[in-house]
């Protein structure tokens, strides 16, 4: 550390810094353009136009008339179609009420409207697009590789089988068993709420597909041991043994020692 601190004033430091900066900006550009070039869905001008109308009437209060963001909502420039498709498609947006985090509810817009909104937001600046079907096809994914990635990147918040878990101050990571493949992909790509973003350099589209395959596999496979008890681990098992097991045992002891007529 001292070594670096001393060399900070070295004449070469400026060059290194310049190079670094160039690399970073270039890299960021590459990532963004890389993502948008992966966009499969082509939006028409009328989609954008319809989307803008929907946006102004439903979203602008918080996100601003041209999605530039206000005190109550972030800027949507550059969040991409994937973010819109996820937030609106899962019913999180428009927000029902303010709270620690946006709640899932029945989506307010149908698929077409969601797509129009996505087209509008995508037109504001380059951002991740709605994923291609190829990367949502779990028959091509590797559940075992996905399992390793899931345990490393996702399990600490979502639990090892995606049952969900608590975050700080009332926030939580939701249960994943009912989430669609597309929304799983978009969540990884865009990092909704407090979830970190897993861009394509961190988890490649193939790896994302592996993760989705794992989530599908683990939530759709029946538990060989019987009822899953919520897949919540030892707490659920402990409660079950007290409130079912021991209750049954006490019932037996009472029956056993009751005097027959």
């Amino acid at each position: 550390m001292k070594l670096l601190a001393e060399r900070r004033r070295h004449p070469m430091a400026l060059v290194v810094l310049l190079l670094l900066g160039l690399l970073l900006t270039g890299g960021a550009y590459a990532v963004f353009t890389g993502n948008s070039s992966a966009s499969a869905q082509e939006y028409t001008a009328s989609d954008v136009e319809e989307g803008e109308k929907l946006f102004v009437t439903n979203c602008a209060t918080c996100h601003g008339m041209s999605a530039e963001g206000t005190e109550n909502g972030p800027s949507l420039v550059g969040v991409g179609a994937a973010a819109v498709d996820f937030q609106v498609g899962t019913g999180r947006m428009p927000l029902q009420m303010s709270g620690p985090q946006a709640q899932v509810k029945e989506p307010q817009f149908n698929e077409e409207e969601t797509s129009q909104l996505a087209a509008y937001v995508a037109s504001l600046g380059p951002g991740p697009a709605v994923p291609e079907d190829e990367y949502l096809d779990t028959s091509q994914g590797d559940a075992a590789a996905g399992g390793g990635l899931f345990r490393t990147n996702c399990a600490m918040c979502h639990n090892v089988v995606g049952s969900g878990g608590a975050l700080t101050r009332g926030k939580y990571a939701p249960n994943l068993s009912e989430v669609s493949e597309k929304h799983l992909y978009e969540a990884m790509q865009t990092g909704p709420q407090n979830m970190p973003i897993f861009n394509d350099a961190n988890l490649t589209p193939e790896q994302k597909r592996d993760v989705i395959t794992y989530v599908r596999e683990i939530s759709e496979t029946p538990s060989p041991g019987g009822a899953k008890l919520g897949s919540l681990g030892p707490v659920a098992e402990g409660l079950f043994v007290w409130f079912f097991g021991l209750a049954a045992v006490i019932g037996m002891t009472v029956w056993l020692s009751a005097r027959p007529k």
């Binding site: 600490m156 639990n159 608590a166 990571a173 030892p234 402990g238 409660l239």
Partner: peptide
């Protein structure tokens, strides 16, 4: 690590 890491009761 998994969310909800707990020991037996």
């Amino acid at each position: 690590v998994s969310a909800g890491t707990q020991p037996d009761w």
